[in-house]
């Protein structure tokens, strides 16, 4: 059946109707995917929360120092003053959730970016050089992949005293790069065997040029998809770690700390849990959906 596809594909000529780049192809598919548009809308909202939280809620409402939180309002139900209720300290849960987005998303983005860079770099070296280098790196990857994810992060964060965003980012990156590395390594080996790589070598191209110009651009696609999906998962992991008291600590707060704080009051004031959990779930979902849509658009084999 792929023969038909090939026949039609190969007959596209420069004199044919449409000329597109590979990214243009992907964009064409994305534009037609409702999953993409839902996730894009959600992510625009997340982006506003992270960059301009002031547009959505006043910062004073999140702190007792500025008089935004008053114990008198502790666990106040949703009303005209507190749109989504108040927490134990009497802070506005809606405003807290808006301002709590920034650390959560920053952790996710940093962990995803670092994981991809480190994973791609190591995977590229392993796949490109092969032989002893590859088997050594592959064994290290195997060992890391054997470590249970959250448990590893808990042990690591308990052992190293690095509170706040950086500790969480470090722990997540350290435990996630092997997955990215393994993925990139496989793709690198595939690209290395392609004739265009051979052609570059026969031109006298250096290893560095071959890796950067020819192999990486053809091997990085899937790991970008994975990065987008894992970005959502990292945000969830941050919440888990903060919930366990190992991530972001007071006076800083994130969705994770909010969920942790809410557990005592859940039956009295379910909004204290449901609101930040709702924000978290929608954000994670948005990234996962985006990853799905991008992966379908980048992979011609999945095209309908």
């Amino acid at each position: 059946m792929s023969d038909i596809q090939l026949d039609v594909e190969t007959s596209v000529r420069p004199d044919g109707p449409a000329s597109r780049t590979l990214l243009g192809d992907a964009w064409y598919d994305l534009r037609r995917s409702w999953i993409f548009w839902i996730s894009a809308a959600l992510l625009v909202f997340v982006l506003v929360m992270v960059v301009f939280p002031g547009l959505l809620a006043p910062q004073e409402s999140t702190s007792s120092l500025t008089g935004g939180c008053q114990l008198a309002n502790s666990l106040a139900p949703p009303s005209s003053q507190f749109k989504l209720g108040a927490d134990q300290q009497g802070c506005d849960v809606y405003a807290l959730s808006i301002y709590g987005a920034r650390p959560s998303v920053i952790v996710g983005v940093l962990a995803a970016v670092l994981t991809t860079i480190i994973g791609a770099g190591i995977g590229l070296i392993a796949g490109f050089f092969g032989g002893k280098v590859d088997s050594t790196i592959s064994r290290i990857i195997d060992i890391f992949l054997g470590v249970p994810y959250i448990l590893g992060a808990i042990v690591l964060l308990s052992a190293v005293d690095l509170p706040g965003i950086w500790g969480v980012v470090l722990a997540l990156t350290l435990l996630s790069w092997p997955t990215a590395a393994r993925l990139v390594r496989g793709k690198v080996i595939e690209a290395k065997g392609q004739d265009y790589t051979l052609a570059a070598r026969s031109l006298g191209a250096s290893n560095g040029r071959i890796m950067v110009r020819h192999i990486l651009p053809n091997a990085i696609g899937p790991s970008i998809v994975v990065a987008v999906i894992s970005l959502g998962l990292f945000i969830g992991a941050e919440a888990t770690l903060s919930y366990l008291g190992l991530g972001i600590r007071p006076p800083d707060f994130s969705w994770g700390t909010m969920i942790a704080d809410a557990q005592n009051a859940f039956f009295q004031a379910p909004w204290t849990l449901l609101v930040p959990a709702g924000f978290l779930t929608l954000t994670v979902l948005a990234f996962i959906l985006l990853g799905e849509a991008v992966s379908e658009a980048l992979d011609p084999k999945l095209r309908k």
Partner: peptide
């Protein structure tokens, strides 16, 4: 000394 390869589909980097 230079080389011309068989398969015009795989011998050109699709991203360039």
């Amino acid at each position: 000394i230079q080389m011309i390869l068989q398969d015009p589909y795989t011998s050109l980097n699709p991203r360039m």
